[in-house]
Design a protein around this nucleic acid. Structure first.
Lengths: 240, 240
DNA sequence: CGTACACTTCGGCCGAGGCCGAAACATCCT
DNA sequence: AGGATGTTTCGGCCTCGGCCGAAGTGTACG
């Protein structure tokens, strides 16, 4: 044990992520859920034995954490830092040379709305960010977002109390570059709070087994009424 | 060519970074300088032939970019996104399980002050962030920094005009988690501007061949006078 | 208990890829 | 031209690590 490249060094961490099966595992965990070894094996596309080995390495390097529960073992991302690293790698991968990316039709749901660790991503997230920004509730720039006074009131009315867990005078939110659309959307405290609220209202529900989110019909009404987003859930005619 | 794992996918990018030699190359380029293939070979700790192969792969995946100049070939990080990914990986690596990290004495200069892509890092960066924050010139929270009105005036007096290249009403700056000290310091536009100004004033100079920065004697006076930082350049007695 | 299920450990196979020596190519200098 | 320096290409070696089948541990449930 304690192989030179197992934890702790940049190359070590990167080479852990740099295996297709493990990257799939971590991507699946980016949904923010804890998943069992078996489920992860399915995501990874390799057998349970092989997956077991991968999981052991990831836990050993503290990229993921383990919680035993009966005969199941639930794994989750060990920290927001790991999620951030995955996110950054996605951005670099998406930014790179555009070898044709064969977009399967099953990506369509993911592109409309999905979770990104603890917040929203996809077209819905962008529409929300646009709407909030346009109405002066948040101001986005340079990887950073600021919630305005009116914004704080708006969110409070919507059932999100940002002042509660923020000690600094101005509540803040990170932005996070979107993988599919390559534009920033809301992450950080605010992003997490919005996702939680939308789930709580059942405006969106998780699609079992994936990171995709389904927008319910009450959600469609509510999102239009509250955020004035365009009907992004009407899947666009794909050019071919 | 166009191997499945060469670019474009998370695992592809990560596995490129996940080789010790290539990680060393990228780390060296995090200094923000363009470096020649030969210099990079020295940093990587492998022969020139091997390095050449690595560089080709990194260029192919658009992690670094190449500029020919006579018989030299200068390589640099291809984008801030790549720097961000490296940074995130450093954080994860540093956050991980604390296997003893044998701190060589030559790290000492790096710990005092160094460049991190385009901005300062190390104790000097932290001292500046502390000082600026304490005096109300910037307000730091949650991965984000805001420059106050007084701050903008202060920086302007110091020769840094933030309003020039910012279109939004409040100039912003990212923060960046420090590798050696594990605390946030100033990055983003402001971070880059500060580093540039300190270099311009010759308050700090680059140590040839490394990312470390040397604080000149005029720099020591200036930093104390202007930013009221403690004398962090007096190397601390290491516990043993 | 015994069976079913979830997961891990062991052992062996095998391919991808990192490494270097040797040699070729390119550029600058005199 | 000829030599020095910087960089790449080629060929071959060899290790590291992912993969699976088979068998072993542990937990739940009737």
């Amino acid at each position: 044990m304690s192989n030179i490249a197992s934890g702790n060094t940049i190359a070590g961490v990167a080479s852990l992520i740099g295996d297709a099966a493990r990257a799939n595992i971590l991507s699946a965990l980016m949904g923010g859920h804890a998943l069992t070894a078996g489920e992860l094996a399915r995501h990874a596309g390799v057998t349970a034995q092989t997956t077991s080995g991968h999981l052991a390495k990831l836990v050993d390097a503290a990229l993921i954490s383990l919680e035993k529960q009966g005969r199941h073992r639930y794994y989750r991302l060990a920290s927001p830092e790991v999620a951030q690293a995955m996110q950054s790698l996605m951005v670099v991968a998406a930014t790179g040379p555009k070898r044709h990316h064969p977009i399967g039709p099953r990506d369509e749901a993911m592109r409309t709305a999905r979770t990104c660790y603890d917040h929203l991503a996809g077209r819905l997230a962008l529409a929300l960010a646009d709407s909030l920004s346009e109405r002066g509730y948040v101001s986005l720039a340079d990887g950073v977002g600021i919630v305005t006074e009116e914004g704080a009131r708006f969110f409070s009315d919507f059932g999100i109390d940002l002042a509660a867990d923020r000690r600094s005078k101005r509540p803040l939110c990170r932005t996070c570059l979107d993988w599919s659309e390559r534009r920033p959307h809301l992450a950080g405290h605010l992003g997490a709070a919005i996702l939680a609220r939308l789930l709580g209202l059942k405006w969106v529900v998780r699609s079992p087994g994936t990171r995709a989110l389904e927008i319910t019909s009450s959600g469609q009404r509510g999102l239009v009424a509250t955020f004035q987003v365009p009907p992004i859930w009407r899947a666009p005619h794909r050019p071919r």
